[in-house]
Write a protein that binds this DNA or RNA. Structure first.
Lengths: 213, 213
DNA sequence: TAGATTGTTAATCGATTAACAATC
DNA sequence: TAGATTGTTAATCGATTAACAATC
């Protein structure tokens, strides 16, 4: 099964919409109806579901629950994933406190920072530890995923140290592009860039409106 | 100037890399060198820059500073943008405290929540106000952008209220798809989905490794 | 002038949409 | 059986890459 990047990025949206449909008590849904809800063409829905190995019944549509379960398995959800949070600033603390990740099986096992003022403080039941001791503490409490919530200048060096500690999943909030070995998975959340895109779209609308006059 | 969605999403990355080059004291950069840094082909760099109206000099490359300034103007940066934060939970508070947005001209003018326990509290110098009074308070203190950091179930209704208050830019952190009039600009930050994509990539690697054995 | 590198057109590649036979 | 809807192939569309003439 080879999944294109475009399809992978849409999978979580399928998962979310199917969960909502389940809550509403919907048992089966056609590509037409699902397309209407998700703002995709029925054709794309069928291509996507087919490509990630889901299947429906001609004449009836797709079974909501089993399709949701299937996508969950493909996404690797359902198990537990141990996560360390590096950087106890605004973002790091917000991620540590988020209930929704924990509900999905992503559990925070440790939090690190370099700031002496933050070390020892408690964030949502987990103490902030000294990042200088990262290597030693990661041996005691290993993690699969690291949430990188540190200044851009430190991101690359920390990512390399975390990689050496066995971390292979990097959820990167720093405005920096990480260079890591091929077997590392990096998912970027570039908040500044996202806000800049919004700024662009607002300006674009303003320009279009000005032109009309 | 018509910019494809793909190009728009890359613009902030150009902006960031050019700012870094500026700091390093680089005056001119060729598409080849910039491509190496940004992990894009030189061909794409030239297409992109041309498409958003930047230009270079044959034989010399692109002028770093003026190109950065040009992209900043296209993105609509440089001015001030008034932002209201709706939802004073983990995400909302983290966004209110973020220094980097403020540095880019995005200023938080108000924060709203419905929780009586939060109303009146101070977040980074701004008091949390009662969302029940949104309409009245938004008249006193209008905003161009709303940061939607509320539960998914409330996102749509709040977005509509904010739209009625004149907000046209929506930075949506709720795991919901907003349906708004065409002249609204919506930029989604779906953290759950991003983490699920990371989970998928980790599972994929695990599956590939298992197959090899 | 010669070398380097852009601007821009053409070719390729991949993703989306359309179409329709298969089948529930 | 007839109607509905999938699975899947073919057509289209858009984005990326290659090529090369223009020019600094």
């Amino acid at each position: 099964m080879i999944l294109s990047d475009a399809v992978v990025k849409r999978m979580p949206a399928y998962y979310r919409h199917l969960r909502e449909l389940e809550k509403e008590g919907v048992r089966q849904i056609s590509s037409r109806e699902l397309g209407r809800r998700m703002d995709l063409t029925p054709s794309q829905i069928r291509q996507d579901i087919h490509s990630f190995g889901g299947c429906g019944r001609q004449g009836c549509g797709y079974p909501v629950t089993s399709l949701r379960e299937h996508i969950g398995r493909v996404l690797g959800l359902g198990g537990r994933r141990r996560m360390t949070i590096v950087g106890a600033g605004n973002i790091g603390r917000a991620m540590a406190r988020s209930a929704s990740f924990a509900q999905n099986g992503f559990e925070t096992v440790s939090i690190f920072d370099r700031d002496a003022a933050k070390i020892g403080r408690d964030v949502n039941g987990t103490p902030v530890q000294d990042v200088a001791e990262l290597e030693r503490l990661m041996q005691e409490e290993p993690a699969e995923i690291a949430v990188l919530a540190v200044p851009a200048a430190n991101a690359q060096a920390l990512a390399e140290r975390l990689y050496a500690c066995g971390v292979r999943g990097f959820w990167n909030f720093a405005p920096a592009d990480l260079r890591l070995p091929e077997d590392a998975a990096v998912e970027n959340v570039h908040l500044d860039e996202s806000l800049e895109v919004l700024s662009f779209r607002l300006s674009q609308r303003a320009r279009a409106a000005a032109e009309k006059e």
